[in-house]
Simulated assay, not measured.
Amino acid sequence: MVSRRILVVDDDDAVRTLLRRCLESDGYDVTEATGGKDAMEAIQGGGVDLMTLDINLEGQSGLDVAQAVRKHSDVPIVMVTGRGDVIDRIVGLEIGADDYITKPFHVREVLARVHSVLRRSGGDAPHMAGKSSHEACPEYAFAGFRAVPDRLELFDPKGAPIELTGGDFRLLKVFLERPRRVLSREQIMDLVNGADWSPLDRTIDNQVARLRKKIELEPGTPKLIKTVRGVGYTFAAEVTVSGRL
């Protein structure tokens, strides 16, 4: 099996060393960066399967780095935050981070988070490689849109591609597989993140708002992802599926 490559971005030498030893002991290849410039160079160079990113980088916010990365790549991002920085966590997830680790952390938690995010973003296959072009993937059609979540592809009614993060695609797939069903926020979080979330992760409203901005004509008065007051959400469009194995 090809070893997965993790980019560790932190300006603290001790933290970088701890993360590198932890990840290398589990079989990952690790590249280190101390700031946003080095991180962007590594991402643009390709081959990065996941990055851990400290929020409080010296002279720069990790949130700004994450936002810059999201303009060029959907590589999974695991934010590293200070204990109790709930606002930072919410903003990070809104930007497109896939998960977060709080300091101080235990190495087992780091590995569990990394394993979970990599599994959700594509298992053991190289990131962004997707499935073989000869292998059928479920294709969904709704309101003129065409989506192939397993290949991270979404096209608007005019055929133009729409850029979504890996988290956006997981959320969209949850709705596409369950059209016109009322889903509670807890159900959606379970379906998007499996068992790897806690009550502090309840930022589904922010994730839904971000997805609405990408697919709704008027996000303020959504026609596709509708709020069910006091319960959760429902995907109101008719969905057809093709290409399923």
Results as ranks from 00 to 15, higher is better:
residue 110 V to P: 03
residue 110 V to M: 07
residue 156 D to I: 07
residue 112 A to R: 15
residue 152 L to H: 12
residue 125 A to R: 15
residue 154 L to M: 10
residue 158 K to L: 12
residue 110 V to C: 09
residue 131 K to D: 12
residue 117 V to I: 11
residue 127 H to A: 04
residue 108 R to Y: 13
residue 155 F to G: 03
residue 170 R to P: 07
residue 150 D to Y: 05
residue 106 H to S: 11
residue 108 R to H: 13
residue 126 P to T: 08
residue 109 E to Q: 15
residue 130 G to V: 09
residue 163 E to A: 12
residue 126 P to R: 10
residue 135 E to H: 10
residue 150 D to M: 01
residue 108 R to P: 00
residue 122 G to Y: 03
residue 116 S to M: 04
residue 126 P to I: 10
residue 162 I to C: 08
residue 174 V to I: 12
residue 169 F to W: 00
residue 165 T to E: 01
residue 163 E to P: 04
residue 109 E to R: 08
residue 162 I to P: 05
residue 101 I to V: 11
residue 104 P to E: 05
residue 146 R to G: 00
residue 135 E to Y: 12
residue 119 R to N: 11
residue 104 P to C: 02
residue 121 S to Y: 06
residue 137 C to M: 09
residue 104 P to F: 00
residue 104 P to Y: 08
residue 117 V to P: 07
residue 171 L to M: 10
residue 164 L to K: 09
residue 161 P to R: 13
residue 127 H to S: 01
residue 131 K to R: 14
residue 174 V to A: 04
residue 146 R to H: 02
residue 128 M to Y: 08
residue 108 R to K: 15
residue 172 L to Q: 09
residue 140 Y to L: 04
residue 149 P to F: 01
residue 153 E to T: 11
residue 157 P to K: 06
residue 141 A to G: 10
residue 103 K to P: 06
residue 152 L to A: 15
residue 142 F to Q: 02
residue 137 C to V: 14
residue 130 G to Q: 11
residue 124 D to E: 13
residue 128 M to S: 12
residue 101 I to Q: 06
residue 167 G to Q: 02
residue 126 P to D: 13
residue 165 T to Q: 00
residue 142 F to R: 05
residue 130 G to I: 11
residue 131 K to P: 10
residue 115 H to S: 09
residue 132 S to R: 14
residue 123 G to I: 03
residue 125 A to E: 11
residue 169 F to T: 05
residue 110 V to E: 01
residue 171 L to K: 03
residue 122 G to K: 07
residue 120 R to A: 11
residue 148 V to C: 08
residue 128 M to V: 12
residue 137 C to P: 08
residue 135 E to R: 13
residue 173 K to H: 15
residue 151 R to A: 12
residue 111 L to D: 02
residue 175 F to D: 01
residue 141 A to C: 10
residue 105 F to E: 04
residue 173 K to A: 13
residue 141 A to S: 15
residue 112 A to W: 02
residue 174 V to M: 01
residue 101 I to R: 02
residue 158 K to E: 10
residue 160 A to N: 15
residue 115 H to P: 05
residue 109 E to L: 12
residue 119 R to D: 14
residue 126 P to E: 09
residue 168 D to C: 09
residue 134 H to L: 15
residue 115 H to A: 06
residue 163 E to K: 14
residue 127 H to D: 07
residue 117 V to H: 03
residue 128 M to H: 08
residue 158 K to F: 10
residue 110 V to Q: 07
residue 149 P to Q: 02
residue 102 T to F: 07
residue 139 E to F: 03
residue 176 L to E: 02
residue 156 D to H: 07
residue 134 H to D: 12
residue 163 E to R: 13
residue 140 Y to C: 00
residue 116 S to C: 09
residue 109 E to V: 11
residue 153 E to S: 10
residue 155 F to I: 06
residue 103 K to S: 10
residue 125 A to K: 14
residue 169 F to Q: 03
residue 128 M to L: 13
residue 104 P to I: 02
residue 147 A to G: 01
residue 109 E to M: 13
residue 138 P to V: 06
residue 155 F to A: 03
residue 107 V to W: 02
residue 156 D to Q: 00
residue 110 V to R: 02
residue 137 C to H: 08
residue 121 S to V: 04
residue 131 K to V: 12
residue 106 H to G: 07
residue 118 L to K: 08
residue 116 S to W: 05
residue 158 K to H: 13
residue 149 P to S: 06
